[in-house]
């Protein structure tokens, strides 16, 4: 085959791939807009039932994940401090430990790791649940009750997951900093309150705002992408695994993308 044909194939493949990804992103954004419109249209309908679904979602995503998040946060906090002490002692800058904790945990690792845990635990569950409901005709049953499935299923999950992710990120940051402090105190006998006051000085208002914006974006992304793929399962049960897998990958990539984008917007 002539070299020109290979070039056409490669460029064609890349172009198609990019267009497909952009299309999917557009569809997800469209899904978000439809969700918002639905939420506004039925804002006064079915509040009690919605509240129950919303509470169930926060309980599942937030309360039940808390244990896992705390364990991971403690370990990560300790790890950052151990590495920080090991590296900073070499250059004699151990006093920037609080600054390191702020940059690594509060700004970057905390939100991203929490998002990963939520994607693995709740995102997959949501995608599978929606997929099964679509395949088994449960969505149509809900529609035939005069209930908009987006309103009944998507909105409480969207709000619940977002709120749970925000809460979990707050917990992750606090617990990992506590873990870091304990490690620092145990390893190099840095007084707890010295690190605490250093941290209070290092953390800026912008860090709190960035953390909140990231949490909001991650929560919305996870809920939206997982529900989007779940609703698109079609009518075959064999479509569920690939859709769930696609949802996980899309969630992960979008979360990393938003993490970089938000950090660049606020810190550059």
């Amino acid at each position: 085959m002539p070299a020109g044909n290979y070039l056409h194939m490669v460029t064609g493949f890349c172009g198609r791939w990019i267009i497909q990804k952009l299309n999917r992103l557009g569809e997800i954004l469209g899904f978000f807009v439809v969700c918002l419109k639905t939420a506004l249209r039925y804002r006064t309908t079915g509040q009690r039932l919605m509240a129950r679904t919303f509470i169930q979602q926060i309980y599942f995503t937030g309360v039940q994940s808390l244990e896992l998040i705390c364990i991971i946060a403690l370990l990560v906090g300790g790890l950052v401090v151990i590495q920080g002490i090991a590296q900073l002692t070499r250059v004699g800058s151990r006093d920037v430990l609080a600054s390191l904790l702020t940059v690594v945990i509060i700004r970057e690792v905390g939100p991203l790791l929490t998002a990963v845990v939520v994607i693995l635990r709740s995102g997959s569950a949501i995608a599978i649940e929606m997929g099964y409901m679509t395949v088994l005709g449960e969505i149509e049953s809900i529609e035939m009750q005069g209930i908009d499935p987006l309103h009944f299923l998507a909105i409480p999950r969207l709000v619940g997951v977002t709120l749970a992710v925000i809460s979990l990120i707050v917990f992750f940051n606090v617990v990992s900093i506590f873990g870091g402090f304990v490690s620092a105190w145990a390893l190099v006998d840095i007084p707890f309150w010295a690190l605490f006051s250093d941290l209070a000085r290092e953390v800026d208002g912008i860090d709190i705002i960035v953390g909140s914006v990231k949490a909001l974006m991650f929560g919305l992304t996870i809920a939206l992408v997982c529900m989007f793929h779940g609703f698109r399962t079609g009518d075959a049960i064999t479509n569920i695994p690939p859709q769930v897998s696609r949802a996980m990958v899309d969630c992960f990539i979008l979360c990393i993308f938003f993490n970089v984008l938000i950090s660049a917007l606020f810190y550059l």
Binding site: I58, Y59, V63, V170, F171, I208
Partner: peptide, 17 residues
């Protein structure tokens, strides 16, 4: 309790910072 605790921690953080 989970939501309240989150709010408290958040407010405490804001107060400390």
């Amino acid at each position: 309790a989970f939501i309240l605790l989150t709010l408290l921690i958040f407010l405490f953080t804001v107060a400390v910072v």
